[in-house]
Write a protein that binds this DNA or RNA. Structure first.
Lengths: 334, 334
DNA sequence: GGCGCGAATTGGAACGTTCCAACGGGAGGG
DNA sequence: CCCTCCCGTTGGAACGTTCCAATTCGCGCC
């Protein structure tokens, strides 16, 4: 069980017979400390099990060397990839990363973000937040902030996204090339990027002369959302021969709904997802999808953050181009 | 872009024409403040965009109201469930949760844990760490600590796990009941719980009089580990008719290897996983597995943590009983 | 009219660091 | 032999809060 109180720099100083300043110098690896004193301090610290108090350090230095990352949904494997990128880029820059999650609920997201803000992280990365732009902009006023996987032309922060509109078009173009006309879309409503993916879908449909076949049902970025969406598509009206789903997670739900309804994929209906998560690559799933490199986006976000932290400011909105990954859930229409 | 310096309690006090102590009282919702002063303070805080500095508060109160959670692997959906449980239980107790990840590498895990420790979290939850017990025990000496999804009879901290040995036996018993004899195991080596699952497998095999059929290949708690393990099992020697894999993620890799080798599941070989993650429930995967309720384990861990934080100490090692979930990857031997 | 009391408010110490200006002492130069 | 310089070391202020003891103020009571 934890003992009375963790040892402080003062305790170490007393035991080593030096001043706390000297201990501080040793801990930070200063060159201007005599070898014997250093040894004495190191020994004393080890004996006491001294561990520097990051809270006190952070208070006096006005810098935490921590970047905060708010994840909109920890169940979406796409964000695990973003985490990888953020974490490795942060480590490269001598920073630590700490996460949070908002469970897709704006209120929870705001609270998670607030927690990070109160902790005075040096930079904040928001991955796929459903938060209002107003809240994001407000936060950006007090800390360097970068948005990942959600576009925004707003000022005051940077963003790194893929071109969701282009991605949506890519999906449609692929299906059109296969000969589909009745291509439906399961949208994720207000989810990050959902609007653009939908717009990409609609415009590409129009360009292909298929305006009359545009059909959008609302869902979400979750399995349940995709399942429900597909259920509705299969139930009512003229059945589509292909469905472009808002993301992989939802696409997997859609696949499930098709399986449950005895509808063959891609025999009866083709399905396209979005994100190219590890899930999509599983042999049993083998989902055609749009690739959006999560780890890279995360790493770029941190680099932008570093520039802001260093004072090199300029609202940069990086947009990477998505690409199509064809697997076995798409084929010619029946 | 962030302005010069975030406003402090002092700035608010000046603007409202009161002392910093009064502002502090208002911020903490004290009842003994006159209505007019309160209003003045609230207004001043809003105008300045004041946000309390958790770092300073944490320093003086010697309490952060944050529980730290170190995740061994953010790509394993099982841990996302643990996060859910931890987060909701923490919120219930008025605490915030902050995560970290160690990417299954002991050195990285130690660093992640150290980060949390330096930040002086009030409690630490370690989910499935591969860290040495020595390191865990050392950390437990300075902070209330609970281990999740890894057993340990050590003193100084609590743990919440499922009975991995029983789980391993459950898998074997199910397969034996189906008529299998050549049941192999893909182990996760030094991963948390791996040893016990293996022991459970071995003992159950012995109990069933199948000692001579015991066959263990080493893998890991990842898809690649499972893939490789299955590849080896299918390649060399007498082919098993059933395989118990260390966890769902690895089992999915194993499934893939079987598919790639043209081996039918469960026609030629049955496969059992562990964890009962959302992955296993996917229709396309439909994996027979051992259920270990992640969210519940996470929530229980936080409750134990709270008891320790409140000083009610006692090394408690909670072990929940796993259960078998039969799906379609298991069947009678060919 | 003075006294006591409670309620509202305040100043200052404390938390554990870092940083800076200042200090002591030995060596080297005049 | 004294002065200077530099190196290693030190004390104290500062960071933004909370908490406690002390202060002020208004009011009722004797």
């Amino acid at each position: 069980m934890p003992e009375g109180r963790p040892p402080t720099i003062k305790d170490v100083a007393d035991r080593a017979g030096v001043s706390k300043s000297l201990v501080s110098l040793v801990m930070r690896g200063s060159a201007k400390v005599s070898e014997e004193r250093r040894a004495a301090v190191v020994a004393a610290a080890a004996e006491l099990g001294y561990r520097p108090n990051a809270v006190a350090r952070s208070l006096v230095r006005q810098r935490s060397h921590v970047v905060g990352l708010m994840l909109s949904d920890i169940h979406n494997p796409y964000f695990a990839e973003v985490v990888d990128g953020v974490e490795s880029a942060a480590a490269l820059g001598g920073y630590r990363a700490l996460f949070n999650t908002g469970s897709r609920r704006p209120a929870a997201e705001r609270e998670a973000m607030e927690t990070l803000l109160e902790l005075r992280v040096d930079g904040l990365v928001l991955a796929g937040p459903v938060l209002a732009v107003r809240d994001i902009a407000a936060a950006a006023r007090s800390v360097p902030l970068v948005l990942v996987a959600r576009a925004s032309r707003s000022v005051g922060f940077d963003s790194v996204t893929n071109d969701d509109r282009r991605g949506g078009a890519l999906a449609v173009e692929h299906l059109v090339a296969l000969g589909h006309e009745r291509i439906a879309h399961i949208s994720a409503g207000s989810g990050a990027g959902a609007r653009s993916r939908r717009t990409g879908y609609e415009r590409a449909m129009a360009r292909a002369g298929l305006s009359s076949h545009i059909r959008v049902v609302s869902g979400s970025f979750t399995e349940e959302g995709g399942y429900e969406g597909m259920r509705r598509l299969l139930a009512g009206g003229e059945r589509p021969t292909a469905v472009f789903v808002a993301n992989d997670l939802a696409a997997i739900g859609a696949l499930q709904a098709a399986d449950d309804a005895g509808v063959a994929v891609p025999g009866d209906v083709s399905v396209v997802g979005y994100d190219n998560t590890a899930l999509a690559a599983l042999g049993r799933i083998d989902l055609t999808t749009i690739d959006q490199p999560g780890a890279e986006l995360g790493a770029m976000a941190v680099e932008l953050l570093f520039e802001r932290i260093d004072g090199r400011v300029g609202d940069r909105h990086i947009v990477v181009t998505p690409s199509l990954v064809v697997r076995s859930t798409t084929g010619p229409p029946p």
